[in-house]
Design a protein around this nucleic acid. Structure first.
Length: 434
RNA sequence: GUGACCGUAGCUCAAUAGGCGGAGCUCUGGAUUGUGGCUCCAGUGGUUGUGGGUUCGAGCCCCAUCGGUCACCCCA
């Protein structure tokens, strides 16, 4: 296969063998989301670049060097719009909320999206792709901390239903427009005299995005982080109360969370509550989320509090595999029609019976192209079908079929096959399947 | 963007010291001309990622390039 016809770097085909994981996660997530009153939305994969730029923040890594952005073809006036593949889901949903006037509906408006593609031009590695998929929820138009707890509780319930264990839930509050600027000043004051002793990354963080100083993993800086002022000790009164209430409500959902004052998140739009669920194996984030009370105003909309999260489906699948969780398998066929002979009457009969079973809603397979009897039976066996439906010359002559139970093993003395009228096939299968 | 490791059949991997490219699985056919699983036999499948170099001779050594994996950065 010439390399030019391979999938692009960081892009992956999702093969049939992995599809059961996807279906299991999608069905579980959607079911729980509906339980909490969320409604599905799908937004376009392309948006005007400013939708992401203005919300995520100009100086974030995602916007600065990870977006797939390009000029669209020129319109009639020769203008070119710069558009981008979405790197995250929230901005598009908020854009849609405003565009369709959903702020006029009863609030909050609770939306979820399923397996939407996200694109970031990073170097791929385990659990990180250039196209990945997220399931996400956004609750718009409600600032009550109860909804923060609700959304985290819902997420936890989804993981529980998937069978995942040992998931770390980490929670923090990064304040709002009132208290965060003051905290950042305090943090910079603290770091200023230590800066010359900090790693290179931290030196740039200090100027570019001071909150990220707390994110440094360099050993030489850990002590500085440990003694740095905490955001949670510097929240304004309303933020403090909000955070306390979130934690109180969270207990109702039995979520074993820990407050981690060091999680800050990579997007600028977050306010107050932020959270991450991580695998305990490698601490990699399975999802991230938080409150973004200022986003709608960035788009010129009315003040609209909001909170949401995005779950990385590929990462959840990785974690499920690590924990040995096997998703429900695809249903096996009820019947596999085989036929011995190549006459038109024979092939017509096999095709007709197969079609009738399918029209009746049974999962039925058959063979094509007149293979040997043994080969057909092998195919029937490999398909996992409960019954093979066997048609030979004798059956053709008297309008019957042989129904053979493929699940009865070779060592069993149990009767494996019966001859029945073709007209009784459907009712026989309905009666005897599983 | 930085770094490390790895590229042999559809998949998982062999190939003595640089000396005729192999096996298992899968797939196809057969052993049993109308009956699967177990077993046995046979077959299909390769420009050893690509291009150059060293050598009498390169899957193996050297250089380049492309791709993959992993880590850093960052993130889901």
């Amino acid at each position: 296969m010439p390399e030019q016809y391979r999938a692009l770097q960081g892009f992956k085909d999702i093969l049939p063998e992995d599809q059961p994981y996807w279906r299991f996660i999608e069905e579980t997530a959607a079911e729980v989301a509906r339980l909490y009153g969320y409604q599905r939305i799908d937004t376009p994969v392309l948006e005007d670049t400013s939708v992401f730029r203005r919300t995520s923040g100009e100086a974030t890594d995602i916007v600065e060097h990870e977006m797939y952005s390009f000029d669209d073809r020129a319109d009639k006036e020769g203008r070119r719009q710069n558009i981008s593949l979405r790197p995250e889901g929230t901005a598009g949903v908020v854009r849609a909320y405003l565009e369709h006037g959903m702020f006029k509906l009863a609030q909050p408006v609770k939306l979820y999206y399923l397996s939407m593609s996200m694109f970031r031009r990073e170097r791929p590695q385990a659990g990180r792709l250039r196209e990945h998929h997220q399931f996400g929820c956004e609750a718009l138009g409600e600032g009550d901390p109860a909804i923060d707890a609700e959304i985290i509780g819902m997420l936890y319930q989804i993981y529980t239903r998937l069978g995942l264990q040992n998931i770390r839930v980490r929670l923090n509050s990064i304040g709002d427009q009132n208290c965060r600027p003051q905290y950042i000043e305090k943090l910079k004051e603290y770091y200023q005299p230590l800066l010359s002793d900090c790693c290179n990354d931290c030196q740039t963080r200090f100027h570019k995005n001071p909150l990220r100083l707390l994110d440094c993993k360099n050993p030489q800086d850990q002590k500085k982080i440990a003694e740095a002022p905490r955001i949670t000790h510097n929240l304004c009164e309303p933020c403090q109360e909000h955070f306390a209430t979130v934690q109180r409500y969270l207990k109702f959902y039995d979520v074993p969370f820990e407050v981690d004052t060091l999680i800050v998140r990579g997007l600028d739009y977050y306010t107050r509550t932020v959270f991450e669920f991580t695998s305990t194996v490698d601490n990699v984030a399975l999802n991230g989320g938080g409150r973004y009370d200022g986003m709608a105003e960035i788009f010129g909309g009315p003040h609209t509090p909001g909170i949401g999260f995005g779950v990385g489906i590929e990462r959840v699948i990785l974690e499920m595999k690590r924990q040995g969780i096997v998703p429900p398998a695809e249903a096996k066929p009820t019947a596999f029609v085989v036929y011995f002979g190549k006459s038109q009457e024979m092939t017509d009969t096999a095709a007709r019976l197969t079609a009738e079973l399918r029209k009746a809603g049974l999962k039925a397979l058959t063979t094509y192209g007149g293979r040997s009897t043994k080969a057909q039976m092998k195919q029937a066996n490999a398909s996992g079908a409960t019954f093979s439906i066997i048609i030979g010359d004798d059956e053709l002559a008297n309008g019957t079929v042989v129904v053979k139970n493929m699940h009865i093993g070779p060592e069993s003395s149990e009767n494996k096959q019966v001859s029945i009228k073709q007209s009784e096939l459907l009712s026989y299968l309905r009666e005897h399947q599983q």
